[in-house]
Every structure is written in C-alpha cells, then in structure tokens.
Design a protein around this nucleic acid. Sequence first.
RNA 1: GGGCGGUUAGCUCAGUUGGUAGAGCGUCACAUUGACGUUGUGAAUGUCAGAGGUUCGAAUCCUCUACCGCCCACCA
Length: 715
Amino acid sequence: MDKTFDFKKLESGLYDSWEKSGVFTPKIETGKQPYTIIMPPPNANASLHIGHALFVTVEDIMVRYHRMKGEPTLWLPGADHAGIATQVSFEKELAKQDKTRFDLGRDEFVKQTFDFTVKNRITMENQLRALGASCDWTRKKFTLDSDVSEAVFTTFKKMYDEGLIYRGERIVNWCPRCATSLSDLEVEHKETEGVLTYIKYPVVGGGEIVVATTRPETMLGDTAVAVNPNDKRYVKLVGQKVLLPLMEREIPIITDIVVDMEFGTGAVKVTPAHDSTDFEIGQRHGLPTISVIGQDLKMTESAGRYAGMKTKEAREKVIADLQTVGLIEKTQPHLHSVGRCQRCDSVVEPIISKQWFVKIASLAKPAIEAVKRGAIKFIPQHFEKLYFNWMENIRDWNISRQLWWGHQIPVWYCQAQQVKSDKLKVISEGGDNFIVSAERPGKCPVCGKCEMCQDTDTLDTWFSSGLWPFTTLGWPKSTEDFKYFYPTTMMETGWDIIFFWVARMIMLGIYCTGKPPFELVYLNGLVRDQEGNKISKSKGNVIDPMMMVEKYGADALRMGLVVGTAAGNDTAMSEDKVRAYRNFANKIWNAARFINLEVSTPKAVKEVELTAEDTAWLKEFDEMIRETTKMMEQYQLGQAAEKLYGYFWHTFCDKHIEAAKPRLKDEQQKETAAAVLDHILKNSLIMLHPFVPFVTEAVWGELYDDQLITAAWPK
RNA sequence: GGGCGGUUAGCUCAGUUGGUAGAGCGUCACAUUGACGUUGUGAAUGUCAGAGGUUCGAAUCCUCUACCGCCCACCA
C-alpha cells in the first residue's frame, strides 16, 4: 500500500467497479420492504454546484446505509428540462452570438436547446459519479423522455376531464422579457422606492375624490373608485359616479372590504386589468376590465391618445396632462414591493390573459390531511408549519407558459375557428373549439377536415416535476417498478422548494396514485461560505464541488458537507474543512496500512482469549455501533459522521493501535491483539463506508476479498 | 399585516427522550528516523443573548425582552 491515500488514482476505478458489478441496481424481492429515493433531478442547463453536492452526499449516505442493511435499495437518478430556467440560460448563450430565439424559430430553438441539455446532462452525470453517487443508472430518466411526457399529457387530460384544469381569462403575472406568464411563486417581491401620486377625480355633480397610486398610467383603465364600507368620510359619495380624468369616462364609486382606510386617502382607483387586488374587486362587483397595457409593455388602443406609448412614457405624459388640468394634489416618496421575474429579474406586469389553471382547493385538502395524520413526516418537523401555512392559503395555479422549451400543452384547436394571432410573436393563440388529447388527434371533430393545431403554450416545469416520484417508475402503467417501489421512502431536497416542488408532488401524487408519494421529506439547508454568506456568482464566493473533489477527493468533500450539519439548517462550507477531512481519509488509509503490514490472517475475536481491557474495548465499540445506528435511523447524519470520526481517530487509532504496537511484538499477546484490531477496523470500515465510500472500499480491497459496498451493517 | 428560524470557544457550526459543554479551522508548549507530519502528547479560551419560571438538576421545557435572518401577503 502507498504511504498516502491516492484518491486521484483510485476513485474513478472504484466507482467503475461498483457500477459494473451491478450493485446499484436493486433486485425486486417480494416480501422485503424496499428503500427508495427518487433523486431530485438536477436542471439540465448547468453543472452541479455545491448545493447539489450536499444533497447527493445526504442521499448517497442513506442509500448505502440501507443497502448494507440488506434492503432492496433504489436511488433513481434523472434530469429536469427545467422549462423557464433552461430557456433563459440558452437564450443567454444565443445572445452571445447576437441571436434571439426568434432568429431560430421555434422548432430549431427547441432542437438546439435539446442538444444543449444533452451536453449538460452528460457532464452532470459524470459529476454525480465523481461524487460517488451510487444511483441506478439503468433507470435514469429525463423529464422530456417520451414515456414521462406521455404521463404528463395523460395527467393533464384526466385533470381537464375531471374539471381540475380550466382555461380562463384572468389576471396573471407577465414577464415582458421572458414573454410569458408566471405563477405567483415565480415572482419575487423586492422593496423598491417609488412615488405615491394623489390624483383628484371629479365627482359627477360636483366635488372630488382623491385617490393615491404608484402607477398613474393605469388610471386609463380604471373602472371604479372603491372605499371601505365603514369609512364615514365617503358615505355620501358611495353610489355616485366620478368622471375619470383624461378618459372622460363615468365610473362608479363602490365599497369593498379590502380597502384600507388608513392608506393614502382611503379611496382607491380600481384597475381590474392591471392589479390583482383590483381584479378581485372587479369580479365581486361585476366591473368591466379594460386592458390599457399590452404584453409588450406598450399602451393599447384602449388607452386612447396614449396608445402605442411605452408604459414609462405614458406615465410621464399622464402626470403632465393631469398637472395641466390641476388634478394632481401631491406626490410623496413611497416604499413598496415590486414583483420581479425569478429568472431574469424583469419587473413583472399584471395583465389579463387567457391561460390554463389548476383548480387547487380539492387537491390541497388531502395533501394537508396526509401531513396532519403523519402519513408524510418532515425532517425537521417545523417545516410542516410552513407547509400548512402555504397550503391553507393556496390559490389556483397558472400552469401555462408562453415558452418554447417544455411540454407543449396537449390541447388541439380547430383551425377553422382559430383566432388569428396578432403581430406579437409569442401570443398564445386559439379559439374556443378545442379538444384535450394526450396524442395528436386524427381528424378534427369540430369541422371534420382541418389538421388541428396544438396550443402553443408549454406547461410550467413544476407540473411535470410534481409527477416525478411516479412517472420515473413507469406510472400510469402498472409496472413492476411502480408496484414495488411506490410509494417511495424519502424525498430529500432543499427547504427553499417546499412550495414549488414538495407540495405539488404531494398534491399530484395523491391525486394520480391515491397515495402520498413518499413517507418522509428530509430538507437540507443552503450551503454557505465560511463567513455564512449566501453563495453566488456575483459575490465571487462560489465553491466548485468538482474543484474540491480534484484537490481533496470526494470523500473529503462529503465529510466536509455532512459533519456539523443538521437537517434544515444552512451549512458553512470552507476549503479548510474539506482539507481536514482529506486528512481523515488518509488516517483511515494508514490505520489499515498499519494493520495490513503487522497483521496476517487474524482470528475472530470469539476464537481468542481476551483480556479484561480487550473486552471493555469491544463493549465500548458495540456501544458505538448501537449509538451510530440509532442516529442513522433518525437521520442525524452529521452526528453519526462525527461520532464515527471521533471514535476511529481518537479511540481506535490513538488508543487501540498505539496499545497494540507492543502487544503485536509479544508472541503471547499477538493473536489477541490482532483479532481485536481486525474486528474493530473491519466493522468501522463498514460504518464509515456510507460517508467516505472511496477510501473505505479501497482499503477493504487491500485487506479482504469481497466488496465493501455490499457488506452487512454490524449489529 | 401574518408566520418561521437563529443568538453556544477567536471564526463557522453540532449538541432530538433535561444529568459534569463538543467538532473543524485558528492559538500556545512539547515530541520527531517507528501506519500516517495529511502525525502524536498536552494546554488555553465559553456566566450556552438577557430576565423570570418548572425541576433534585435546564444550552435543552415554559413565559417575556433584545438583537439578527428568512418566508408568506391583495403596502393602492
């Protein structure tokens, strides 16, 4: 054996031999309870970052542990097409060549994006291998695989047929840069310094009512003024009309409970087409919606003489015009939150648009129940509160995106009825005569002749992600895999995607299969830098996991990520820490090297005569096994790792090996000392293996004949 | 407006049935052909944010306060 553990030389060979030996692929053994983790599929648009390395480590530890316990263990890998994220990142690639997606056209764009994801997937899969991920590559999936897509379309159709998906003209979050609608979750609110403008609206028949707004240009689309029903100041005005300035349109003064008497003047202009609260007020009062801003952020025809202007320009002009007629009372600085696109940071515009929605209430109810009755448990448990908090206030989910990259919505329109799209390149087109079908329909059932055209929208990427725990296992077909491995055991992912992903998997899982998709949700935290800062490219504190693997080995990185980390808590990562665990891997190597040199053909501890001290040591070791196993069962991985680390280094190496040195030279004591060392080393290697798989397997190969990865966990 | 989390060694953090405070890095002293210097031995450093309560006993349970951080929301 070399003097140090040469991870660079050994790691990839060790991985290959595991993979080739087929141990990653479980055998279906009826009667045995399987242990299943579906890997959160990394986005196919980039390499793995340190956060991926953390989840890979945690999952691989659990998978190796359960495999060693003799359970049929499946860890199913995959990749996510990551709709908007990938489209935005590939568009950035195109921008480097001064191109936009429109230069390529939809088909070519999709083709090139696909090629882009294929490249990324290959890189990503090799990175997973480098980290030691013992997942079953024979079962790997991609969200755009034909069988997965088919399951997605089938689900869409089922939900439509059962009234859970509807198409509606509603107010949605519109990202002008991405040219698509977004779900509420994809909008990030940021505090922004704005201006509150107080505008006087003349009351028909005399007087005036002052409203305050941060967006004066939207007044062109006002269809009411609202006050709180309990507001004494305006009692006399309610029911009267105001003459909307600039547009010279009469609109009513109404009451609505959402109006805050304390804010501004207590009177609010209502623009149902450009504000979600106003939209709801409009719905309650049957107000018309007048869209004055288009998808391109230009004022529409309905904006009268402001038509064609950009919103910013229109705002200035509206203020100037109001000023001229003396209708601006005052302005004041105002801090408020502005929605921005999660992917590209553009300011999101609420507009009216025809979109597809999931009716969420009936899906949320059993999903809340499942967690309440403990069918699904969260680690750490306090995240259940967060889950309930969101689920109990959940709103319908906009699932259509005006993107090109993703699952195209399986809805087919009769072309005879098709509404011609306008000049906008991205508008979702289609009339009202459509059918929903998982496959391209043969003949148009509406006109009997046309080739139906498919909806141009794609599905929110999280729709397919929500089905992931079972589409990966072959659902909706009743495959052997689905029958055996579903419901899965654990879903391990970041707490930051509880709403995006975990909640949707629970809702759709129960809806589609009748069962919660997993028993346990283990939430890992964010990996931060040494000072506890969030890691980001702009801060320049990115820790590339592959660089760490290159410099210190995968074992060192894994230990560095997992020791001192608790579920749900953020982890501070530093190179120093990784270096320290590189030393630990080397310590393991050298302890084994010593025993390899000094001990040959050791007997079992049962076959030798033990001293009282030996017995005490073995008892202490058994206690360590018991405690560590308990921690593993309770998913206290950081503590288990630390215990093993401390025991192996400071008890086994520093005490036992040191004490054994003179004994091994003594003919009388030699046999016993060797047996005890071998016993503890062997079982320590087994328990350390899930954490540091490479060095333990390498050492095992030097000492024993079989493979460590399938050795039995000690009892 | 509602909710959640944190406050433990110089730094970053563990500490899950309440029982004499732990790790990594850093610091100091000593050891040095011996499995490993990617080492060993020893040492220093903590009123576990503050106050009150429960208890034989609290970093751990309860209440309040302070300061950080985060999430959600229809802040016109």
